[in-house]
Design a protein around this nucleic acid. Structure first.
Length: 269
DNA sequence: AGCTCATGGCGAG
DNA sequence: TCGCCCTGAGCTG
């Protein structure tokens, strides 16, 4: 259940594990037999993430496209792969390692042209060096949608999920319900730069930490305690608890079917 | 053991 | 905007 930073880590891990090697691909579950056959026996040449989309390349003109969705999961192992347990959509194997993919929302083999179309559709990803924030700004500045919704739109901000959405808005002091067109350029820049910093930090440490030391109740303690999602955050999943900065209660509401967490005092407008 | 919810996205309507 | 996809963790009992 990852946001973009996890997918970037997985892309690196796939390259580290299988890069330059011939891989066997199979679908123990059977649901991806046709796709697995298309890449079986090819040499894996690269892998990268565009937001939450993983694209793996081979020495053929085929690419593996994986989107984990809410349930998807990769499991890596160094030994010979064990007998499959449960539903494994895709298993990649080299002489010395294997990777199992379960429950992805999307797993397909695509052509160069299809890959280009996909990449063109995905918005700028703050983690990527080649991301163009102007594309996001162009959408935000003319949109009547709430900025909280725009941040979750992968055509606008790729890789941002429910945690980075909540935390970036909190750190910028912006009300999630404010219209995109009412966000000014300076505010957008602050938020974009913050996403770049937070998400790249997430790639580095494999966890989402957004609380500045001066606000952190645990920063002074040795052996930091982390929240259930694995890091320390201002508002995500903290509904009803006290805001670390103003002391008021963190709020939760439904925005387009997803839980939205924010502090009505720190993010009053 | 069973229930609910979750760091997503898609397609129907 | 809703239901579905289809998995696991964290609860409850």
């Amino acid at each position: 259940m990852p946001e973009g930073h996890v997918v970037h880590r997985q892309a690196k891990k796939i390259v580290r594990t299988f890069g330059g090697q011939v891989v066997s691909a199979s679908s123990p579950q059977g649901r991806f037999d046709t796709g697995a056959r298309l890449i079986d026996g090819a040499t894996l040449t690269g892998g990268e993430a565009f937001g939450k989309h993983l694209l793996v390349s081979f020495d053929t003109e085929r690419f593996l496209h994986v989107h984990l969705g809410l349930y998807g999961k990769w499991t890596f192992g160094k030994e010979v792969a064990p007998e499959p347990k449960g539903l494994i959509r895709l298993r990649l194997e080299s002489q010395t390692a294997f990777a199992d993919l379960r429950g992805p929302t999307r797993c397909e083999v695509i052509t160069t042209a299809e890959r280009a179309a996909l990449v063109a559709r995905i918005g700028p990803d703050p983690i990527r060096k080649d991301a163009d924030p102007e594309r996001a700004w162009a959408r935000v500045k003319r949109s009547r949608s709430a900025i909280g919704a725009l941040l979750m739109n992968q055509e606008v901000f790729a890789g941002v999920g429910n945690i980075y959405r909540a935390e970036a808005l909190y750190r910028a002091g912006i009300d999630p319900y404010r219209c995109g067109r009412d966000v000014d350029r300076a505010e957008f820049d602050v938020m974009w730069d913050d996403l770049v910093e937070l998400m790249r930090d997430g790639v580095r440490v494999g966890r989402i930490d957004t609380v500045r030391d001066e606000h952190s109740p645990t920063a002074m303690k040795r052996g930091k305690r982390h929240d259930r999602h694995g890091g320390e955050v201002y508002v995500y999943r903290r509904a009803g608890q006290y805001c670390y900065v103003c002391g008021d209660e963190v709020a939760c509401s439904d925005m387009m079917g997803r839980n939205l967490f924010w502090c009505p005092t720190c993010q009053a407008h």
